[in-house]
Design a binder for these strands. Structure first.
Lengths: 190, 190
DNA sequence: TATATACTTGAGTGATCACTCAAGAAAGAC
DNA sequence: GTCTTTCTTGAGTGATCACTCAAGTATATA
């Protein structure tokens, strides 16, 4: 007896993620979302409850897809090659709405206000870091990286480098490919 | 015959810089500024013209002091030691309102909207990068770094690492000191 | 002391913010 | 077709945004 919604909820979340990713939390108004998602306020709030709730869903989707993409890459080319390729891949992603990491942007924007979404972004960054640590550990098991290194420390440094790289990639006066190549070269030296 | 203002303009800019640095552009309202600077709207607009104008002054001050501090450090301990010490110093700065770089935060927040302040932050980051390149060049002249490296490329990578480090330093699940130590160790290997 | 020249004050501006809700439209169940 | 349930619509909510301005106040000069 009910009526079905005209929109595809998953697609809406993905589109919202792209807008939030590009413009940030404060930089995205409900007017923006209504226009891009083609939802009137009533439908928007029936579907998602609030701007923050949708942002949270977008954030989760972003992180989940990021981890999945890296894991899939590692399954194909192995942990070491995946870690070496990732810097180049993240700055080349042509379909992406921005080069910088959405988790990092969210954290930087909202952490000072102790916003719940900053906390969520922090947790997701931590999970991403754990994923990196896993790959470093695997690369040690396959003998590609010397066992003397602490995989957690490698992951921490690697993630920090990626965050810097991705922010640098938004600048026109920086050749991010050179940085990415240098990061990959450093991994080979481990 | 005129009356003198009750405030110290330079001090006001420094205090505004700290608020903007911590809370970002959209995250700082005029109410915030009026409260922290103890200025009523009339005085505020007589003194600075607009929120954006004050933000611009704060940004310039931030960058100018950052460059000056690094140059002074290099004069004391030499270019190589300055470059090695900087990562630790920026994350230890106890009086600072935030660990992350204000230029990077501004750029990340406002670049998508082509805001004038993002452009200004970009230019200032570029000047900072040039300062890093100078130091790498000097370190090559003193023989501390092999002359085969391109100082501009080293500066680019170094700045990218610093941006990542400083963002990481805001996280509670990351030991930024370890990252800083690793960055310094890598400089020694050049 | 008188006057001219700022600076300070704070109520008030229109615009935009996230969000609400009542009314109308559409689709499955009977 | 009729009913029930849900979705869609969009005008409207109070709050907050950056900002204005006229009136009041303080000070240096004459």
């Amino acid at each position: 007896m009910p009526r079905k919604p005209e929109y595809d909820r998953d697609d809406l979340i993905a589109r919202a993620r792209d807008i939030f990713w590009r413009q940030g939390w404060a930089g995205t108004s409900l007017k923006d979302l209504e226009r891009e998602l083609k939802l009137k306020p009533g439908s928007f709030y029936a579907a998602f409850g609030s701007k923050d709730a949708l942002y949270g869903l977008a954030l989760d989707r972003y992180a989940q897809e990021g981890v999945a993409r890296l894991r899939a890459l590692a399954d194909r080319v192995g942990p070491l090659e995946a870690l070496k390729a990732q810097p180049r891949l993240v700055i080349e992603a042509s379909g992406a709405p921005a080069k910088a990491c959405m988790l990092a942007k969210t954290y930087a924007e909202l952490q000072a206000k102790d916003h719940e979404l900053a906390g969520r972004a922090g947790v997701l960054m931590s999970e991403m870091k754990a994923c990196f640590a896993d790959l470093f550990r695997q690369a040690q098991e396959t003998g590609d990286i010397a066992p003397s290194h602490d995989p957690n420390r490698l992951a921490m440094r690697y993630q920090s480098e990626l965050l810097g790289l991705r922010l640098s990639a938004e600048r026109s006066d920086v050749d991010a490919h050179e940085i990415a190549a240098d990061i990959a070269a450093d991994i080979d030296r481990l």
